[in-house]
Amino acid sequence: MTRVFLCQPDHYKHVLSFFIDNTAGFKVAGACHKSVELEAQVHLTQPNLVLLDIALGNGIDMLVQMRKHAPTARVIVLTETEDPAVVLQCLALGAAGYLLVRKTTLPRLIDFIRDACEGGVPISPALVKHIVKALPPGGGPVVLSSTLTRRETEILQLMVNGQTYKAISFSLNIALDTVRSHIRNIYDKLEVHSKSEAVVKALRERVVTSY
């Protein structure tokens, strides 16, 4: 059973609660609509995943607090805020995904939650395109990309697309252990320690493009 905590506006929180509670394998562990309540409630409920709207309170600090009070919980930012710099900052701070409310249907949200719990980093496709467009022109991953093999670059692209290890294994028709081995090599070469860090660096350094 995946226990989900909601930190969302009232009007959307009720819709999410009803839908999640009526989806097999999922349960709403708790909910709030004010950032001031978030830390205590998450510490009390210890959910598997938090759907966090950073527009409700003190923004990025809310995500930082989540990592402190529920270190094992995955945190997906679900918001209307689409500033590329904010997206990259949230991912760099360990967010397990970043989704736009108006671009994410409820059935698709459940898929994204499953992906995040399985190690994926779901990002709304429109956001990746905004991030790429917002990056300074010129440069390019001449040195960085040259250190990655063709297969590693291919896997990194699929990671940016939000695919889980299992999905990458299926897409490329390779063993799951082989995927894990490639991803360890990618982490070493990019000098990162997590999937979200790898996605951020891949986009910033233009190692890959977008969806």
Rank of each mutant, 00 (worst) to 15 (best):
G57A: 10
Y12V: 13
G30Q: 10
R3T: 12
I20L: 15
K133E: 10
H69V: 14
S145V: 07
V15D: 13
K201R: 15
F170K: 15
N58D: 14
T164R: 04
L106W: 03
R150C: 11
L176E: 14
R102D: 15
F112Q: 01
S17N: 08
V192D: 04
N161Q: 14
Y187P: 03
A85P: 03
M62G: 02
A167H: 01
L91Q: 08
D10V: 06
L176C: 07
V42H: 04
L38C: 05
V200G: 01
E118A: 13
P47A: 11
P84W: 03
S124Y: 05
V15R: 10
V77A: 03
G120I: 00
L51P: 01
K68C: 14
P47T: 12
R67T: 07
K133A: 09
A29R: 01
T81F: 00
M1S: 14
N185K: 09
L99V: 04
T209V: 09
E191C: 13
L99P: 02
T81Q: 04
A175K: 15
T81H: 02
V207N: 06
L176K: 15
S17H: 05
K166D: 13
D115R: 13
R150W: 08
Q46F: 04
H33V: 06
P125N: 10
V121E: 00
V36S: 12
V87T: 08
G139W: 06
T149R: 01
H14Q: 15
G138K: 14
A29N: 07
L172Y: 02
Q163N: 12
F170W: 09
C7N: 12
L156K: 05
K13Y: 05
T178M: 11
P125V: 14
S124T: 12
K201G: 01
M62E: 07
A126R: 02
S169P: 05
L158I: 02
P141F: 12
A73E: 01
L203K: 07
E118D: 13
P122H: 04
C32D: 09
Q157I: 04
A96M: 02
P71Q: 04
N22R: 13
Q163G: 02
L38N: 01
